[in-house]
Nucleic acid binder design. Sequence first.
RNA 1: GCGCCUCUAGCUCAACGGCAGAGCAACGGACUCUUAAUCCGCAGGUUCUGGGUUCGAAUCCCAGGGGGCGCACCA
Length: 370
Amino acid sequence: MRVDAWTLLAEARRAFPDKWHGLTDTDTRYRQRYVDLWVTEEARATFRLRSRLISLTRRFLEARDYVEVETPILHPIPGGATAQPFVTHHNTLDVDLYLRVAPELYLKRLVAGGMERVYEIGRVFRNEGLSPRHNTEFTMLELYEAYGDYHVHMALLEELVAHLATELVGGTKLTYQERELDLTPPWRRATMSDLVEERIGVRVDITTPIDDLRSLCDEHGVPWKPDQGPGKLLLELYEKTTEASLWDPVFVIDYPAEVSPLSRPHREVQGLVERFEAIVGGRELCNGFSELTDPDDQRSRFEDQARLKASGDAEAMSVDHDYLRALEYGLPPTVGLGVGIDRLVMLLADQPNIREVILFPTLRPEVGLE
RNA sequence: GCGCCUCUAGCUCAACGGCAGAGCAACGGACUCUUAAUCCGCAGGUUCUGGGUUCGAAUCCCAGGGGGCGCACCA
């Protein structure tokens, strides 16, 4: 080798980690991603996969005539999900604003305005606990389609996930955390009641007397409160006894209306709504439903939520009068779906922790760094 | 918020009540052989912090801090 000339492009004033062992301290990896990306090939691969996944998702939806939109992140009224929002303040307007917990209500305003297929991929913020599956801010894909019902979006979602798996990991049969997982459509559809029955061996549904539900909760160590109705108890039973035991993809369908303030009533069963969640690898991947389009029904559901909020439920929604006004102009039958992009990336990148798929995850601020 | 585990050189780790060490990286030199590993040399520490026990603490105890996992909350 013969050097004719050389120029110093950048100076490394700090020593890099061990070339062979790399970084094992996850705290350092997450705080100093600029070092992690240098030394951890797996991290580079994960974030490349994430980028491709989002790109493929856009192309998939655009091929189906979905239009990408951007809606406000600062909301005057938090809504669209039952979750605690962050509060901030606008100085000039002198009003409190909330970081969005979901884009849902704005996207449905757009459908009411004649945009029949819309989607948004964006950050939402929830002021709640952190875990290997929860980050304070995370990326949600939400999409809405006029003239469809929840069956339409179940089919779309399983097709999207199968497409992404094929493109990104070479097929729909994969291994997640050393366990086989088959994403090949069609996925099973099963009602919440049926799944709980399979698990605990007792038939429960929305008509089960509340005392029976309460004693079942006691029997399975599920805490309950006197003000919780049968729908809430059914959901609690499902979540505590059944959800984590589901592994291969399943659409859990037909949720209690009581816990679904934005969903359309079930076409056949009183007290239920046409809602579904996809559980994959024991984890919720998406949440969707035929949308509630009746402004009177929506108003009374909002009022129920507002009562919960007044009695101390920090996650309950408020009445959004402008949204009700939009419904009064007429929202066609519509289906909507929200997908946790981070969790989808975890699944396809075979990562067990959400922090592995977010470049700069939320951490306690570092002290003593000056 | 509660419980369990964890924190030693830039990084990966040892020392587990008796003088804080190694490998890699860095730095100086030799070598001109790329796909972790050449050789010689040199340097590197508030053992997370503060107390306590002890003749003696990285090691045992208490409190605090950071992180991980579980529970709770949630997606």
